[in-house]
Design a protein around this nucleic acid. Structure first.
Lengths: 209, 209
DNA sequence: CCACGAGTCAAACGTTCGTTTCAATCGAAC
DNA sequence: GTTCGATTGAAACGAACGTTTGACTCGTGG
């Protein structure tokens, strides 16, 4: 691990390039060049470009999903009835925490999320695994308990809204030229703004039919 | 206009295919095939694939921007101090109205918006023109008046949140297989949910520093 | 000392891409 | 009836793509 092996270097390079230029906009040659590896290394270690994307997506989303799950565990251990604000913090927080702003890796991570989430390439679709689904279901139940009277469909809509804000927000930030990038404190600020924004949104009374 | 000319047929085909498969995932050949035109027609009428995308983006965003602008005009004509709810309705409403759900064109439009908004292709960047910027500035001022005490930066963050929810929401809907697509009443429902969600979010008190 | 398997390498494969070329076509103006 | 500009047609261009191949390197176990 001191010296990253070729497989890890490929994952790093692919993560960065997929985040910057999308799946289709990134060539295998660009990945292997950045990784300092041979062109055939992708085929050897991952089988194909699409499987490399899947591996990258797994590596990026796993810690976020784990943090969301652990956050809900900690919350429920403290109280059986978490507030909406607490749930939003636990659910949306990790979506921003993967991003130590100031470091490029943060914006890269979020950029990758939205890229994968919205990439029209067939290979990028249905990237969520059973883990993501399970965590989503748990939060869905917790939010339903904290928001009685809200129809399941509308609740689903609102949880998608959380993902939308968390993911898309950083796109334009990332696209800005380097000097305009957010500093570390600005990144923290954005996180707090998002929590405020989303807590209020989630707490809204049900829409009258 | 009864018989659409080649140029219009190319715009229609490109809009649909860009929305479904993204800029890079759509070949010029696929566009001309769907339009029933010759391969060289894109080069002749638009110069290049990138300029065709710009023309499509312009055609899609223009009516939305116009509706947002007219909505703000109507609002300000009625009262000098619109509420946050009224502003959200006027700003976010047109983002959903371009989408007569049940018809495919709606989902296509929103899909195209998020595709263009988040497409990592350089050609798809900086697609906003002076019109979009001007409307955004006017709403920014109106929201600032309705939300005194909110820092400009946080207000900008929240307005990006509106775009995020309006655009991303429909991505997963569109990706679902046909039978699961929303019906017309479901589309109306989503619009109302979004207004509720976003009005509450925009009305949140400023984040404490 | 040798044999073996994992990993790397340069090279080439066939395909698809955006664009360009130039001849053919067509309707309207003269 | 002919000329002319606008448009369309078939074909080809070079470049870039993902993938595959087969030889080579090298540390390790027999």
């Amino acid at each position: 691990m001191a010296l990253p092996d070729t497989r890890t270097k490929l994952l790093d390079a692919a993560e960065r390039l997929f985040a910057e230029h999308g799946y289709r906009g990134t060539s295998v040659r660009a990945i292997t060049d950045l990784a300092g590896a041979n062109l055939a290394a992708v085929g050897y270690h991952f089988g194909s470009k699409a499987e490399l994307l899947a591996a990258v997506a797994r590596r990026v989303t796993e810690p976020i999903t784990a943090a969301q799950s652990a956050g809900l565990d900690a919350l429920l251990a403290r109280t059986p009835d978490p507030t909406v604000a607490e749930l939003v913090e636990a659910f949306a927080g990790p979506l921003f925490d993967g991003m130590p702003a100031g470091d490029e890796s943060g914006a890269r991570t979020s950029r990758l999320i939205v890229t994968i989430l919205s990439d029209p390439a067939e290979e990028a679709r249905s990237w969520t695994g059973p883990d993501e689904d399970a965590v989503g279901e748990r939060y869905l139940a917790a939010f339903a308990q904290a928001l009685p009277g809200l129809a399941r469909q509308e609740l689903l809509f609102r949880m998608r809204g959380i993902l939308a804000v968390a993911a898309v927000d950083r796109v334009e930030v990332y696209n800005q030229p380097s000097p305009a990038r957010p500093t570390a404190t600005e990144g923290e600020e954005a996180r707090n703004w998002a929590i405020t924004f989303l807590t209020a949104a989630m707490s809204a009374p049900p829409t009258r039919a």
